[in-house]
Amino acid sequence: MEDMTYWKEVWERKGRDTTKSLEVLDGYEDTTANVAEIAKNIIKELDIKETDRVLEVACGAGGLAQYIKCKEYVGVDYSSSLVKKHIELLNNSVLTGEANDLIFKDKTFDKVFCFGAFHYFPNQEYAKKAINEMKRVAKKAILIGDLPITSHREEHLLYNMNDFKDWKIIEGYYNPNRFNVVYNL
């Protein structure tokens, strides 16, 4: 899918939902994902400390953010309705923006992560730009999670572990057809 219009409409609609359930707002309602466990794994893999500045790319309404305890948490998402909902529910610092064009200065954050969003990207070129942006703004480490090898939806962008040779590859946290990667700078 070369155009993100479909997915942007899906996530804008989600953000306008009246529910306060972060799992529903962030799209985990029809999965076996345990968001608290996923956050715990991300914290462990990135070694997030209370003194860290952390950026979450594609933060949604804050399903994972609610578990991240650090000096400064910042989120960015392309859905303005989810950004608004995230601020309303968690009062975090969250901005509307694209993963492939982050507005932050180089090396602004100690740790940067993106979980459960790369399969919504329009193509591999966009994904590569997003990875380069994450590397640019990170000081210490990056985690990209929930990368699908196969999917039940043809709209999902798929990934190959061989494309992440310089990264630590980790099994999917809840889906055996997905994997996670960590890059230490």
Rank of each mutant, 00 (worst) to 15 (best):
V54Q: 08
K44Y: 10
R16Y: 13
D52R: 02
K49R: 15
T51S: 15
V35L: 00
A33N: 08
I48C: 08
L64M: 05
D17E: 14
L46N: 02
V74F: 07
L22D: 05
I42R: 01
E12D: 13
Q66C: 07
E23P: 04
R13T: 14
L46R: 00
R13W: 13
C59W: 03
A36K: 14
T51R: 12
T32W: 10
K14S: 12
L25G: 02
T18N: 15
Q66V: 10
V35Q: 02
T18Y: 11
I68E: 00
Q66D: 08
A58W: 04
L55Q: 07
D47W: 09
V35R: 00
G62F: 03
L64S: 04
N34V: 08
D26I: 03
A58N: 13
E72K: 11
E50H: 09
A39F: 00
E37I: 00
R53S: 15
G62Q: 00
V10T: 08
L64R: 00
A58Q: 07
E37C: 07
C59L: 05
D47F: 11
L64C: 02
D30W: 11
Y28E: 06
E50K: 14
E29W: 07
I68S: 04
V10P: 06
Q66I: 09
V35D: 05
D47L: 12
A58P: 09
K71Q: 14
A33W: 05
E56S: 04
R16K: 15
Q66N: 06
V24F: 14
I42D: 04
I38Q: 10
V10W: 11
I48H: 05
T31A: 03
R53V: 14
G63S: 13
K40V: 04
K71L: 14
T18S: 15
E37M: 09
D52G: 05
G15M: 09
T19R: 02
C59E: 08
E12C: 09
T51K: 14
I38P: 04
V10S: 03
Y67F: 14
L55G: 11
E56V: 00
A61C: 08
V10A: 07
K69Y: 12
I43D: 02
K69S: 13
A33S: 13
Y28L: 08
K69P: 08
V24A: 11
Q66T: 03
V54R: 03
E45L: 13
V10M: 09
E45R: 05
K49C: 10
E56L: 03
I38Y: 01
E37A: 10
V10R: 12
G27A: 07
E37K: 10
D26Q: 01
